[in-house]
Design a binder for these strands. Structure first.
Length: 103
DNA sequence: CAGTTGACTTGCA
DNA sequence: GTGCAAGCCAACT
């Protein structure tokens, strides 16, 4: 894959995450799919490690609704936006998954 | 340059 | 929904 493609992929990821409204979340797989890289879900997480400060990376969770390991603040940020958490520490994806995402 | 790592997903149980 | 194994790809060592 060309270097420019990776750059585009990252840019799309940031754009998508930036489009997610408060109170909703996206999964890495969804983002990867919308970025035309269904297999690169791990890269989404990698991209998040270098995400710009103005991108709400806390709205991104894994397919199980679990929050990012080592980032306890994420739960607080989501709760503040209206996202409901289960007692087991998982997000209620059924209610908060963002379906209208577009590139 | 080769091996390991990881903010993941899918498939099966 | 949860847990384990296998797969995938780029970044890191």
């Amino acid at each position: 894959m060309k270097d420019v493609d990776r750059k585009e992929f990252y840019q799309k990821v940031y754009h998508l995450v930036g489009k997610v409204p408060a109170g909703y979340v996206l999964t890495y797989g969804t983002i990867a799919f919308l970025c035309e890289r269904p297999q690169n879900s791990r890269m989404v997480g990698k991209a998040m490690t270098v995400v710009p400060n103005d991108v709400p990376a806390h709205r991104v969770v894994n397919h199980a609704g679990r929050t990012v390991p080592g980032w306890d603040e994420q739960r607080l940020l989501l709760e503040d936006e209206g996202v409901t958490f289960k007692e087991n520490g998982h997000v209620d994806l059924k209610k908060h998954i963002w379906r209208q995402a577009t590139i």
